[in-house]
Write a protein that binds this DNA or RNA. Sequence first.
DNA 1: TATTTTACCTGAGGGC
DNA 2: TGCCCTCAGGTAAAAT
Length: 304
Amino acid sequence: MPELPEVEVVRAGLEPALAGSRIDAVTVSDERALTRHAGDAADFESRVTGRRVDGVVRRGKFLWMPLAAATVGTDRWPEAIVGHLGMSGQMLLRESGTPPLRHERIRLDVRHPEHGDLAVVFVDQRTFGSLAVDRLDPTPDGAAGGRGSGVALVPSQVAHIARDPLDPAFDEDAFRRAVLRTRSAIKRVLLDQTVVSGIGNIYADEALWASRLHPERLGHDLSSRSLGRLLGEVRAVLHRALAEGGTSFDAQYVNVNGQAGYFAHSLNAYGRTGEPCPRCGTPIVRVSFTNRSSHYCPKCQRRA
DNA sequence: TATTTTACCTGAGGGC
DNA sequence: TGCCCTCAGGTAAAAT
């Protein structure tokens, strides 16, 4: 399940292959992969074909590829191809002409001035992910839109998403205010992408375990000190996962070359139901929480 | 307004 | 072998 570290691995893998390349052809083989696109497949293809990709940018779990102006001298809005991997999306780099892959949804045939012809294949088993052409708007804070770009633009579909904790322009004060005024459980807040982006179920459980916080502790009950520690652990776990290439449990998450990450071996709570807590030996428990699972140590992470 | 629930989707794996 | 059920969970719309 791609969260910030996994998406960043994908971004960093796509960037050298895509920045400066031209999109020669587009093949949409499943229109469900365009659910965030305002038009149909023909519209997507016509708006993307022939455009040059300026780079690959990420905020939280969203990726976008800014497109150079369609025609020199036009004053139309700057645009980008926005992508979200959803639960099972992959962006794979393949040799040009590679036969269709299992669950292939959209293919971009690109030509790079140095690397030659490449196929960028969007593969997605569960079809929660999607691509879209979207308008780029100025960022309200004037800072770069996300990792991978120095330009202060963000796709309109991503504007409501908070910056992620690894973003230099992350608004830590706004995050603290949002947590301390809510009556929601802290885990729910960590998963709210409008408060802080990039965190999913795995890293929420890991950061809460490291902070010794019960996932159902209420935001406004946290002390400023424990909130500060939580934010530090969030950043630490994201950094560690990034260094190990992300978390892979099965074939659902891979980098642009189809390779798995190694962070699954470093998990302390997530997916370790019944196994001893690495800190105190108490068996990790799993509870159903907002239609998903929470894993925590009942001794280290007290609710009260 | 703030918060919670539901729909979307496919394949793996378990039980019988 | 095959059928049915459960589970995985990010996002946004709908409901409370």
